[in-house]
């Protein structure tokens, strides 16, 4: 099975938004490799023609009527905000697209 490299761990950490420390990259590379090596056993059933189960319940069509329910007050909504301004969540500058 694939050996998980330090670079792969770094890539996963970027996808998962974790600013891992250099020593963590090495540590996790070894552990993830062990775990994945072990759990890769599931591929024993890969060629079996059975449908996947993503959910234990056989339910369908659980819906609600399009009726308005009370919202939180803005104060409640913002009650946990690390910072706020003008009744909005204040966050550091968002990079990315201009």
């Amino acid at each position: 099975m694939p050996g998980i490299t330090r670079e792969e761990v770094a890539h996963l950490a970027r996808l998962a938004r974790l600013e891992l420390k250099p020593e963590e990259l090495d540590h996790f590379a070894g552990q993830l490799d062990d775990i994945i090596g072990a759990v890769a056993r599931v591929s024993e059933v890969a060629d079996q023609d059975v449908p996947p189960t993503s959910h234990p319940l056989p339910l369908t069509n659980v819906m609600r009527a399009d009726e308005v329910r009370p919202s939180l007050t803005p104060e409640q909504a913002l009650s946990g905000a690390p910072a706020q301004e003008q009744q909005r969540f204040k966050v550091p500058q968002i990079l990315g697209e201009e």
Partner: peptide, 13 residues
């Protein structure tokens, strides 16, 4: 008023 050069952003959900 664009993201570029902004100091911070405000979010309304």
């Amino acid at each position: 008023g664009r993201i570029h050069g902004a100091q911070h952003s405000l979010l309304d959900y």
